[in-house]
Amino acid sequence: MLTFDKVSFAYPDAKETINQLSFHIEKGEMVSLIGSNGAGKSTISRLANGLLLPTAGKVYVDGADTQRTKTSAIAKKVGFLFQNPDRQICQNSVYDEIAFGLKVQGFSKEETDRRTKEVLETFSLKGDWFPFTRSRGERQRIALASVLVTKPELVILDEPTTGLDYRECIMIMDYLTQLNKTENVTVLMVSHDMELVQEYAKRVLVLTRGRLVGDGNTNAIMKDMSILSKANVIPAQIPTLALKFGDRFSDVYTIEEMVDAIKKEKQQGKGEVAS
């Protein structure tokens, strides 16, 4: 679905931000891109939908070279959720905002109306709301709804849960997971929140100063302290705790697994965890 082939990128008057980066994301994968500030995460997400073009190498979206394809054509396949929903929202009602992407992409009036109403219901939004005066969480939901209404094959989320409370965050992530499972939508999520990455991503790409230092299964990456420290990333709490408890907890990654493992240890009366 998305391929980076030896991609390099530099902003004007700046050093190279991305350096000879290569990776491939299959259709239906749920991938997270992690790394410290300035590692190039947002640049990669903008390269992936053609907003930025590589200075060297190629980016392919579903086989199409982004340098030879119009951004508007890429937008039909790639949905992009910005960190700040206020940059995205430009219409005076939630209905118009959600319908905007469909109108731009040339959908019929009936189809636009049908899809907009469907998404309004799914995201518990009201069409006549004035979007700019809603809460941050609601504005983020409006922005996500207006991205997903076009049914993109690849959804890129740049820090999707910034400024959201736990309930709103879970709601958005659960919806995306469901979409990933039922519609086989590919999700690329840029995030600082390691708990979120641990819980939702199946694969993690670790980035440091524009270079890929880790690429693999989320569980394996979360326990590889050498990779995480290279990227200045603080790992999720449960895998860190499991590492400290030793080999018997090597398969523990979630709260539920940790509770089960501790109960088991207690029943068997073993070691420091049981005491």
Binding site: K70, T71, C90
Partner: peptide, 18 residues
């Protein structure tokens, strides 16, 4: 900068400014 970011956000939704 803000204007360019907003423009990018709309381009990402399929708006053709060219």
């Amino acid at each position: 900068t803000e204007f360019h970011d907003i423009e990018d956000a709309q381009k990402a939704r399929g708006v053709e400014y060219d």
